[in-house]
Simulated scan of single mutants.
Amino acid sequence: MQWQQFLMVAGAHFLALLSPGPDFLLIVRSALAGGWRRAGAVCCGVALANAVFIALAIGGIALLRADTPAFRWVQWAGGAYLAYLGVRLLGSRSRLDVDALGGAASGSGLLGGLLSALLNPKNALFYASLFSLLAGSATPFAVQCAYGVWMFGVVLAWDLALAALIGHPAIVARCARHLHQVERLTGGLLLMLALAVFAASVPH
């Protein structure tokens, strides 16, 4: 039964990982603009943010529940951050403006990835829902922690693989002439995501 549960948890987590979101857009754009090393720093930031949500979900922190004012503040902050990134990218004037989603240093890339994932309310909801189900099925705490470590590792490995693929010099060279259009497209998508987050945060 434990293996069946693990396969269910791992499968649900991986399917959620495949769903494109702001973290995916951030990694792709960073890889095209600065290569896999810069995108790798973003990946580490995204993975660390996931680790924070996992720890909060295992601890049963009420902040992650969708019906709390704190969660609505996270939604608004996340929407504002996505809108900020979108406007920055739409306003970039050349492909040399590679700092729109984070600075040139690795630390800035790390911070950009961390903020992107921390301010994504879907991450909070996913982990809160998944671990509340595990807690309801009396899954031992040690097993939940093992699942959390697994999820952190998968997020980091998947994002690093994505960054290495897109940030390959041959792909970057091929896409360099189109980076301006990529920035415009990414900026537009981020603004659409921001609007969706704002709409979801309005009480119905």
Rank of each mutant, 00 (worst) to 15 (best):
Q2F: 07
Q2L: 04
W3D: 11
Q4M: 08
Q4H: 05
Q5E: 14
Q5M: 14
L7P: 06
G11S: 09
A12S: 15
A12Q: 15
F14P: 00
L15H: 03
A16W: 08
L17A: 13
S19T: 14
P22T: 03
I27D: 02
A31Y: 04
A31W: 06
A31P: 05
W36P: 07
R37S: 01
R37Q: 08
R37H: 07
A39I: 03
G40R: 12
A41D: 02
V42D: 00
C43R: 14
G45N: 04
A47Q: 12
L48K: 04
L48M: 10
A49H: 13
N50V: 05
A51F: 07
V52H: 06
F53I: 06
I54R: 14
I54E: 11
L56I: 01
I58Q: 10
G59F: 01
I61N: 00
I61D: 01
A62G: 06
L63V: 09
R65P: 09
T68A: 15
T68M: 15
P69A: 08
A70V: 03
F71T: 05
A77C: 10
Y84G: 01
V87C: 09
L90E: 15
S92C: 12
R93F: 00
L96N: 14
L96I: 02
V98K: 11
L101K: 04
L101A: 10
G103L: 06
A104R: 14
A104M: 11
S106R: 13
G109T: 05
G109D: 00
G113S: 11
S116W: 06
S116T: 15
L118W: 08
L118E: 02
L119D: 13
L125V: 00
L130V: 01
G136Y: 01
A142E: 08
C145Y: 02
A146S: 08
Y147C: 01
G148F: 04
G148S: 07
V149R: 05
V149T: 14
V149D: 00
V149F: 07
V149H: 09
W150D: 04
M151Q: 10
F152S: 11
V154Y: 13
V155M: 12
V155K: 13
L156H: 07
A157D: 04
G167S: 13
P169G: 06
P169T: 13
L179C: 10
H180W: 02
H180R: 09
H180N: 03
H180L: 08
Q181N: 07
M192Y: 07
M192S: 07
L193C: 03
L193V: 13
A196H: 11
A196R: 12
A196V: 02
V197N: 03
V197H: 05
F198C: 01
V202E: 09
V202D: 07
P203N: 02
H204V: 14
H204C: 03
